[in-house]
């Protein structure tokens, strides 16, 4: 069965948003990351098992853009960790529903981290369930729920995904 058809323009805007989000993480440009979200937003990262049991708990539970800014500040100022790069690959981006007040979309991703040793390993693979809104001409996340399959996280999840 075919899915709903959305305008090429809508799809292009969504693809562009997801591509820029991925690039921001890969570039390590943490300071730019909160700007992908509106002020009154939700960003949760949670393991698949919790998600399927209806448990909201996970590594990250943020309910405002301020909380994302706080996390960036902590990553920069207080957290102690081995330097690393994260490669975030996003694919299968799909608009699920378009409404007057925004879009529902989802995607699949894989994130790898490379520590100082030079070995790259899978940090996590998973899906995102997103609510997007137009914020003064820019498409932004009102809600992003990251559900990851890699329940046994290798080491720490330092940077957002």
């Amino acid at each position: 069965m075919d899915g709903a058809v959305f305008s090429t323009d809508q799809k292009a805007r969504v693809d562009d948003l997801y591509a820029r989000y991925a690039e921001t993480i890969c570039d390590g440009d943490l300071e730019a990351w909160p700007d992908f979200f509106i002020e009154d937003c939700r960003y949760h990262v949670r393991p698949r098992g919790n998600h399927e049991r209806g448990q909201l708990l996970g590594p990250i539970y943020s309910e405002s853009r301020g909380a994302l800014v706080d996390r960036v500040l902590a990553i920069r100022k207080s957290m102690v960790y081995m330097p690393r790069a994260v490669c975030y690959v996003v694919g299968t981006i799909r608009i699920v529903e378009a409404r007057d007040d925004g879009l529902t979309a989802r995607s699949m991703f894989s994130a790898y981290h490379t520590l100082e040793t030079g070995d790259s390993e899978v940090l996590m693979v998973g899906r995102t369930f997103d609510e997007l809104v137009d914020d003064d001409g820019a498409l932004k996340f009102r809600e992003r729920i990251v559900v990851f399959d890699t329940e046994r996280v290798p080491g720490a999840l330092v940077f957002p995904v």
């Binding site: 990262v45 909201l56 708990l57 996970g58 590594p59 990250i60 539970y61 943020s62 309910e63 909380a67 996390r71 902590a74 207080s78 957290m79 102690v80 960790y81 081995m82 996280v153 080491g155 720490a156 999840l157 330092v158």
Partner: peptide, 20 residues
């Protein structure tokens, strides 16, 4: 749930311990 941000794999405090 908000306080759980302090601990776990991405915890504001626990990242330090995991790394150490």
């Amino acid at each position: 749930l908000h306080m759980s941000n302090l601990t776990g794999p991405a915890g504001y405090i626990s990242v330090d311990d995991s790394e150490v």
